[in-house]
Amino acid sequence: MIGERTIEGFTALTLATPDGVLEAAFVPDAGMVGCSLRHRGQELLGRRGGLAAYVAERKTMGIPLLYPWANRLSAWRCAVAGREIVIDPVATPLRRDANGLPMHGLLSAAAGWRVERHEATADGAVLTSRFDFSADDVLMAAFPFAHELVLEATLSGPTLRVATTVHASREAPVPIAFGFHPYLRLDGVEREDWRVEIPVRERLRLGPDMLPTGEREPVRIAPGRLGARTYDDAYAAPPDGAAFVLEGGGRRIELAFEAGYPYAQVFAPADDAVIAFEPMTAPANALVTAGPELTLLAPGDSYRAAFSITVRERDASPGSE
């Protein structure tokens, strides 16, 4: 139920159900990225450029943690909670979007995660790893808020749960704006035949720079075939906790925001057979705008956020979907 395997030259720690039907793998030396989720041997994560490109070029893949911010910022310098964030792309290599804006935070592929627990459980396994942000002078120069991160991945029956906890030091508040970018796919099923459910009710309007304008609008997305549709859109999380769904080929993958993620981004490009339902603790650019949607974790307190991916088997006979 626990083990390790080598993936592209990196040591990945694995979690598996007792029957071996579901297996997840994470790489502590590459930012604790979730690099594999296999159901009956079939990969369900979009591995895109793979681990090598993730480490060398910060090209996202699998289930990457986007920390301390998710998606874009409109500036390389900003003031939050009485302190100045100054991002130096030389000192802390990171992705830039098509407009040159900083993307996806400072911890992509970062080393420094310390594994604290990797154990079997009655119906699966658990992996817990800790990152001391305040121990890294370069990171603290860019994001000067002392804290620790704990990432816990639990595999239980058909469900992989990823919980992230931020523990603030007693020195200063910590802005909470992180997220994840789980890339899902269905091998053996044409993208246009993927069935999706996107149960959102409110969209955040984006400007030409793909940053929120502050305006919102009601929205309803009917469930059905993905077809030729594409997405790179921001939403408020489903108010009733309904799961995002990708279904096809006898599988139904449900991604649910369980706690601490009031915002979502949905990404489904035309040129890559993946779809991402992205849990976010704040909308994009919240560190710069520093509005009421940005949570400031009080000194000494903790913030916990969790999402889950559940894989169910469905009848794949004609007409069943």
Score class of each variant (00 low, 15 high):
E192Y: 03
D187S: 12
A259I: 06
W194A: 01
G224M: 10
P212S: 13
A177V: 00
L255C: 12
V219N: 03
R229V: 09
F178T: 00
P182Y: 04
G179N: 00
E254Q: 08
A177D: 01
P218L: 10
E258Q: 06
V219C: 12
R170N: 12
R195I: 13
R205S: 07
L211M: 04
R170K: 05
G241A: 09
T213W: 12
F178C: 00
G224V: 12
W194T: 01
R220Q: 13
P239Q: 07
A264M: 03
F244C: 10
V196G: 01
A259G: 04
D187F: 00
R195K: 03
G227W: 11
L246I: 04
A259V: 11
A268V: 05
P175R: 01
L211Y: 12
M210G: 01
L226S: 06
R185H: 01
T230M: 08
R191V: 09
V189P: 00
E192W: 11
G248T: 03
L204M: 15
P262G: 00
G250S: 08
R205V: 15
V174F: 06
P182Q: 00
R195A: 04
D209L: 14
M210D: 13
L206N: 05
V196Q: 02
P208G: 15
Y261Q: 01
P208D: 14
G249F: 11
Y231F: 15
E202Y: 03
G248I: 06
G241I: 13
V200R: 01
R201G: 07
P239W: 08
E258W: 03
P239F: 12
L204D: 01
V219S: 07
D193R: 13
V266S: 08
G224A: 08
E247I: 06
A228G: 14
Y263Q: 04
L255A: 04
G249I: 08
D193P: 00
A264N: 02
Y261P: 02
R170F: 12
V266Q: 07
D193E: 13
G249R: 05
R252P: 02
E190W: 05
A172Y: 02
G227H: 11
D193H: 15
A243H: 05
G207S: 13
L204G: 04
L246W: 07
A172N: 03
A259P: 04
R216Q: 14
G250Q: 08
Y263C: 01
R220Y: 14
V196A: 04
Y183V: 03
A228D: 15
G207Q: 12
R229I: 01
D233F: 07
E202C: 14
L226Y: 07
P175D: 00
A243T: 09
F244I: 09
E202F: 00
A268S: 15
D240E: 15
I176D: 00
T230I: 15
V219G: 07
A256C: 05
P223Q: 07
Q265R: 05
P218Y: 12
E217K: 10
G214D: 09
I253V: 14
G224D: 09
L184D: 03
D240N: 13
P223C: 05
D233W: 08
L186P: 02
R185Q: 11
E192I: 10
I253W: 02
